[in-house]
Design a protein around this nucleic acid. Structure first.
Lengths: 321, 321
DNA sequence: CTGAAAGCGCTTACAG
DNA sequence: CTGAAAGCGCTTACAG
């Protein structure tokens, strides 16, 4: 920058003004721009951030990118931030609360303009609350905004569809509850709509993320004479739905003829772009847009639920046929 | 930091030394640490970077995170960087050369310590070459290191396996060539091994990433009397292999009984962790480790090919049976 | 071993 | 409108 000023024969302040588009004499602007071009000068964001306290950088905290939902969300968030001339500082926590806390601190140490976090259970007491934090799907005490899909409505929708397609003996399968997770409204939404319609509904909710064996033994117990005791299952995630489908098929149960299954998330196969099961689709792009908007223009604590929709994915009856 | 110095009754330099673990009197260390704790002080990386010219931040350029390969690679790279106390600045280019160039510049403007890039065709002439750049799977003129899987060997391996499993009329299907892409050695590797074994080999290589219709019409032309004219196909990517399988199955051709298919990448289903097709597996974690090592400790231009392996995924004959 | 001072590359009141 | 100067929060020779 000093070199540019010397080359153009002006003071540093003038160069700064040209860079930032502040009013400057036309002749000065020309020569400064020429000097910038000639020297290949590029402003140093670190130095700028030191003065302005703006870094044009937002930290993204994700549990993993191995799961397509997180990968797509990260993709969408980064694209949105880019449109606002913001960069994303990506941190992967692997579902580990300690790593989550560490990452939050690291992010803040880099003086990010904000944090968008999909976390499981960070130690929030260590967190500096002066930078805006937006969570995805999680409520935390304090002044954090939260954006999520409309999980309760999604649960209702799953129930409505299964009942519409003829199911009467319904089952909800889920892992959780996560700490204060918005996603834990899926089950209650499902149950509410089932009861409203007067349909039978059972549920099995596990706490252990590491094994799904209990789901299989539960299902096995409900297979009598080669027939499953339920005709409609809502799984808390597509991930679970896909695994449940694989298990039931391995036991000779036909899907969707004997039992229909709906998941939640809206995961597509990477190659064929087909849904991996019938599912409640989360509006990922919109969630990203809202989260970015909220983190860049912090307001009072907001709690935003975005509308979901149902999509057919082979594990429910296809009414189009 | 000034506050910390005042609180501890020492000079700024002393605080700096404590923070950076430089030798300091035990009593001073104690009181400085107490002051840091009390004030909740955290060093500002931007200010530090201004002096040291180190940012502990590496830019990651990826075409997208919608494809599992890029998502897993990004995940692994971020984890490796984290272990080196480095953060990742994520930039998504959507395969757009202009965006690639813009991202490279943005990254450098943030004074990253290095760049790891999986790009298609950025305008490299605009790039400042003073920061180390490591590419994945791409060669560029200039002093950039490149890490990739051993694509040529992967192609050979695919041929060897298909031939071992009884195939005699082989076909290679691919999109490309990418500009100077390392991945373009897959076809030649395949062909070389086929010829070496004296097997027939045909190939179809398209240039248009946006449509795969020509693949299907080509295959359709080679279906005579319900039989495909090839008994072994190597697809340049799993993505293509999965789509080709879907097409052939829709035409009533049985896989792997009538034709065996191998892809490249090693993509697993996110839920079942099963390979989406028989495949040549890229060593993603190792590639990430090597790339991070190379970007953090730049040496002379290195060109590193990591070993691949074959994995069964349902589209070749399972010899274990 | 410690403290005072200079300087990293910027921005921003403040005079002129 | 422009230039000279102070200062953002750090680190690092340099004296003491």
């Amino acid at each position: 920058m000093k070199d540019v000023a010397r080359e153009a024969g002006v003071a540093l302040g003038t160069v700064s003004k040209v860079i930032n588009g502040l009013p400057v004499g036309e002749g000065y602007r020309k020569s400064v721009e020429a000097a910038i071009e000639k020297l290949g000068y590029r402003v140093n964001n670190y130095a700028r951030g030191l003065k302005t306290n703006k870094t044009y950088c937002v930290a993204l905290l994700m549990p993993s990118l191995s799961h397509p939902f997180y990968a797509h969300l990260t993709d969408a968030l980064t694209a949105c931030l880019m449109q606002h001339d913001c960069r994303s500082l990506l941190m992967i926590t692997n579902y580990d609360p300690e790593a989550e806390t560490k990452c939050l601190i690291l992010g803040q140490q880099n003086k990010v303009d904000g944090v968008i976090a999909l976390t499981y259970n960070p130690n929030l007491s260590e967190i500096d609350t002066s930078t805006p934090i937006v969570t995805i799907d999680r409520h935390f005490p304090g002044n954090f905004s939260c954006v999520s899909s409309d999980n309760f409505r999604g649960g209702e929708l799953a129930a409505e569809k299964l009942i519409e397609y003829g199911c009467r003996k319904l089952l909800f399968l889920g892992i959780g509850p996560d700490i204060l997770g918005e996603a834990d409204k899926r089950g209650p939404g499902f149950e509410t709509a089932c009861r409203r319609a007067g349909a039978d509904v059972a549920q099995l909710i596990l706490n252990d993320r590491d094994t799904d064996a209990p789901f299989y033994s539960f299902l096995q117990e409900h297979i009598v004479g080669g027939k499953l005791d339920f005709d409609g299952i809502f799984c808390k995630t597509d991930w679970l739905a896909v695994k449940v489908c694989a298990f039931l098929r391995s036991r000779g149960i036909r899907i969707p003829e004997e039992v229909q299954i709906i998941g939640y998330d809206g995961i597509e196969d990477y190659a064929t772009r087909q849904y991996s099961c019938s599912t409640i689709v989360q509006p990922i792009r919109q969630m990203a847009e809202v989260a970015v908007d909220l983190v860049l223009h912090p307001s009072a604590k907001a709690n935003i639920c975005l509308p979901v929709c149902y999509a057919w994915g082979g594990t429910t009856k296809d009414l189009r046929k």
